[in-house]
């Protein structure tokens, strides 16, 4: 009897924990959606900030984030995919792969503010890019690398070995096999990784603080050596250091909602794709 009772108590507690976690998520999302939805309209998305960032829109921040996503992935995506191809297809199972994998894990665990420091020391100061889109993109790209490498490796792992063997048996070289057979088969999964890293890159604030982000710009950036505004930093500014914090609150809610929508859309899209692929595979 006692055994059963303790089991019941434990199960009830754990169930409550589960409910609590769901409640936390719902309250965070709900809070931002409820407060932000009334702010978002066409003007908010396409106008510049106005009157000390208390009215107007967040257009330059959206554009800046877009530039940063494109810039960082132009650099990180090919590099990450190639790195994964090397470790999975070429390197043996020895210490090299183990070391590389450990390095990838370690790179993923470095706090984002350290990336910011590094980006500032190397790209902004040493290479003299200044606060610029290119410095920010490279810094964010480094951050996205481990995500891309991991998902690509998973993707390559999921390609059955029989595909490779069939191609090799037909006389194709290893590189031809990879190019014509392995990568096309792994492509949907690789794209999933790309989408995930877009989500990651667009939400990061700490790495762009000292490498690209501008408090307020009167016009859009015109080149890769210009500063840019970005959504996460703009939210930080609106929340903590605007000229009139109370008056800019609605703007902050709206920015938070736009940011969350971008990030969550990417994550949902990725998990949707993954689920669909899993279903296809099991057929």
């Amino acid at each position: 009897m006692n055994k059963k009772l303790s089991q019941q108590i434990a199960f009830i507690i754990f169930k409550l924990f589960g409910i609590l976690v769901v409640a936390i998520l719902i309250s965070i999302l709900g809070f931002i959606i409820v407060n932000g939805i009334s702010v978002i309209n066409w003007k908010f998305l396409t106008a510049f900030p106005n009157e000390g960032m208390t009215t107007g829109g967040i257009f330059p921040a959206i554009v800046g984030t877009l530039y940063l996503i494109i810039g960082s992935l132009l650099f990180a995506f090919p590099l990450g995919v190639m790195s994964a191809i090397y470790t999975h297809e070429y390197a043996g199972k020895g210490w090299i792969v183990k070391t590389i994998r450990m390095m990838t894990n370690n790179l993923a665990s470095i706090p984002s503010i350290v990336f910011g420091l590094f980006g500032m020391a190397l790209f902004v100061n040493k290479l003299n890019f200044g606060d610029s889109i290119i410095a920010g993109s490279l810094t964010l790209g480094l951050l996205a690398l481990p995500v891309i490498i991991r998902t690509t490796e998973e993707a390559l792992k999921a390609v059955p070995n029989t595909y490779r063997e069939a191609s090799l048996a037909l006389g194709a070289t290893k590189l031809q096999t990879i190019k014509k057979v392995v990568i096309p088969a792994a492509m949907p999964n690789i794209i999933t990784g790309l989408i995930l890293s877009i989500g990651r890159v667009s939400g990061e604030t700490a790495p762009i603080l000292f490498t690209v982000a501008a408090y307020l710009l009167p016009q859009l950036p015109t080149g890769i050596f210009d500063q840019a505004m970005a959504l996460p930093y703009h939210l930080y500014v609106l929340a903590t250091s605007g000229t009139d914090l109370e008056a800019s609150r609605p703007m902050a809610y709206g920015t938070a909602l736009v940011l969350i929508m971008i990030v969550l859309t990417m994550n949902l899209l990725a998990s949707f794709m993954r689920r669909k692929l899993e279903k296809n595979r099991s057929k």
Partner: peptide, 16 residues
């Protein structure tokens, strides 16, 4: 739900 929690940017958590 847990995956979504992981996906929310830290600056949004900070704002919340």
């Amino acid at each position: 739900v847990i995956e979504l929690l992981a996906g929310i940017p830290s600056v949004v958590y900070g704002f919340f």
